[in-house]
Simulated assay, not measured.
Amino acid sequence: MTSQLPAFPRFIFTVYEPITLIGGAIGGIFTPQYFVTEQTPTHIAAAYRWPEQSLLVTQQLGNMYFLAFLLGVLVLHATTEIKVVRAYLVALAIADVTHVGITCATLGLGNSLNVAGWNPVTWGNIGITTSLFVTRMAYFLGLFGPDGRKDLEHLKSS
């Protein structure tokens, strides 16, 4: 099915995005204290001992990143319907907006706009997520060219 996507969004959604999701999963599951500490550019000292509940929730978040990875790979490679792919990408676009919105609301305007002060986790939360959203919107607008949607076939023959 992914062969019906234009080349650039196909690479972004089937290779790049799954790699970023695996990165989030590994960070959350295997290094939860680091993952929590680095959520803000002005983080609490690494020596802070996080409560076990915080680490458990962080590991569960890592597991959700892994679930998102699996869903993405399986949906994009298993379906034969471009309609399903587009619905999946709409859901991700909505999640992109809420993810960045929550992050920016928590960081505040100053930290959100201080790109030079971002750490790797902030880059993931804002930078990578925003780039994925922009790519999704560009795909929906047809900026990468047409996909293999059958409902567009009649336009080609006109």
Rank of each mutant, 00 (worst) to 15 (best):
K83H: 01
V75R: 11
L141M: 11
G148W: 08
T42S: 07
I44F: 12
G72H: 13
G108W: 13
A116F: 11
N119K: 02
I128N: 11
F133V: 02
K83S: 08
T80C: 02
W123I: 10
N114W: 07
S54Y: 11
Q60V: 13
L76Q: 10
L152P: 00
I126L: 14
P146D: 15
S157K: 15
I12C: 14
R10N: 11
S131K: 10
E81D: 04
V57G: 07
H77G: 00
L74F: 14
I102L: 08
V85E: 09
F66P: 02
M64P: 04
I82W: 05
F140M: 09
E153N: 07
G124E: 08
P41Y: 04
T79K: 00
P32V: 05
L5C: 03
L76C: 12
T2I: 10
S112A: 13
I12V: 15
F30Y: 15
Q39A: 14
G110Y: 12
R10T: 02
P146H: 13
D96E: 09
F35P: 00
N114H: 05
R149I: 01
F69L: 09
V57Q: 12
Q39F: 12
L55I: 11
Y139E: 01
F66N: 08
G101C: 13
V100D: 08
E153F: 07
A25K: 05
P9V: 02
T42I: 04
F69W: 10
T103M: 11
V75F: 11
N119D: 05
T20P: 01
H77F: 07
V75A: 12
S112I: 03
A95P: 02
T42V: 04
R10Y: 01
V100S: 06
M137K: 03
G124R: 06
V100N: 10
T40E: 13
I102K: 01
I22V: 15
G72V: 07
P18C: 04
